[in-house]
Design a protein around this nucleic acid. Structure first.
Lengths: 228, 228
DNA sequence: CGTTGCATTATTGTATACAATCATACACAG
DNA sequence: CTGTGTATGATTGTATACAATAATGCAACG
């Protein structure tokens, strides 16, 4: 994340470079390319039917995103995420999600509130039935709406990046009914605080929520998820 | 920003692309290229004596860093920083510097402590004499050492990016003897807390320190610095 | 006089060719 | 048998050529 940063930009979706970038990124995040895999310009270019140029440009961006590491004159390798990285990200996220929730108190729209309420309602339904894929999807979406609601492109982008970045290891760490219900309950409390326009409480709850998510992740399955 | 990402990597210093990247970045941060300036691949390539290829790759990275915006088939433009961006960055930084200071309590080395003490001592000297350039340099360095002391590559990189990003508007906002002395005093207090291995206090002080820096920035000169 | 359409030009997007660098294998010397 | 040196191949780094797209200016028309 490398690329941490102030990371920016909506990478162009319709240029070859943009498509290559998104494709490789997805493949890394989904696990098709694994840690330390070597990515070769020609191979990927042929696979996608493009020349090396757009592939190279995409590589440069992926490097800045921290998804790959480029060793000059040698090659591009998928970067690993250490358990320390994951921990760091969660600690950083907990602070920033808190800030985000606080800001959302001021800027959230009615429409966004409605979406979050619906999200919580749906999540409860799926959680009780153990539909973990839907849960994961809804969880991501809940946070995404909150990111948008904080009305800061800067913070929104940052949080989206972090969120995406840990997807690689997050896969099945929400996967117990207990945690799903608890998590959804926390979402509900956060939204209540935001609706009540209580930034301190919203911040506190959001911060704790991420801490809990991390604790749960460590408890059941970070190691396994990480080593597989 | 852009980016943020979790932005990574030490961009290669010796490849053409790396040199082009650093050069353009410096020129943007130093103000040579101003907001909304259009950067043309050929012109920059000729200026640096390289072809378009490395320039293009550098552009893609700068886009992700948030320093330029690329409009497909049109051009690359230096992005502006709005006053909202600056505020957001300072609020985000205040949280993260707090986290950084807290972590530093556990991981700081004797050598780093010494450098920070020396830094504070020197800064006092220069602050009293109105040597603002040296002050600015020392201020940056103080924070940099703390970033390194937190022992998280992730957080370190993130904070360095933010720090660099606001350099554009930070130019002369430390430029009063009063604020210089106060700021240095705050540094001293932060270091005391770190040395006392008191993460809560270190976090609180570091957070307040950035808030104060922002308040000072707004009070005297953000608007002017920004509009010039 | 203003507006629309087209032609021209400039600039970026992509592909390819060549140069530089690195990895590998093999031969040879010790 | 081991280690070193060299030659070969593969891969990336850079430059350039060509294609696609957007901006500009001018002319024709209303």
């Amino acid at each position: 994340m490398q690329n941490y940063d102030l990371k920016h930009e909506v990478t162009d979706k319709y240029s070859l470079r943009g498509r290559v970038f998104n494709k490789i990124r997805e493949d890394i995040l989904s696990g098709k390319y694994k840690e330390n895999d070597e990515l070769k310009e020609i191979a990927i270019g042929e696979e996608l039917g493009v020349s090396r140029t757009p592939v190279r440009e995409a590589f440069r961006q992926l490097e800045l995103e921290g998804l790959i590491q480029i060793i000059p004159n040698k090659g591009a390798y998928v970067t690993g995420i250490t358990m320390e990285d994951v921990k760091d990200i969660y600690m950083i996220r907990s602070k920033l999600e808190g800030l985000c929730a606080a800001w959302a108190c001021e800027h959230i729209t009615e429409q966004q509130i409605e979406e979050m309420e619906e999200n919580i309602y749906l999540a409860k339904f799926h959680a009780e039935r153990g539909h973990f894929d839907q849960m994961s999807e809804l969880d991501s979406r809940f946070h995404e709406v909150m990111y948008e609601a904080c009305n800061s492109k800067m913070l929104e982008h940052l949080l989206k990046d972090f969120h995406q970045y840990v997807q690689r290891v997050r896969k099945r760490t929400l996967s117990t009914i207990d945690r799903s219900l608890a998590s959804n309950n926390e979402h509900s409390k956060i939204l209540e605080a935001i609706k009540a326009r209580n930034p301190e409480e919203a911040e506190r709850l959001a911060t704790v929520h991420i801490h809990n998510a991390y604790k749960n992740m460590v408890k059941n399955g970070l190691k396994e998820a990480y080593n597989e």
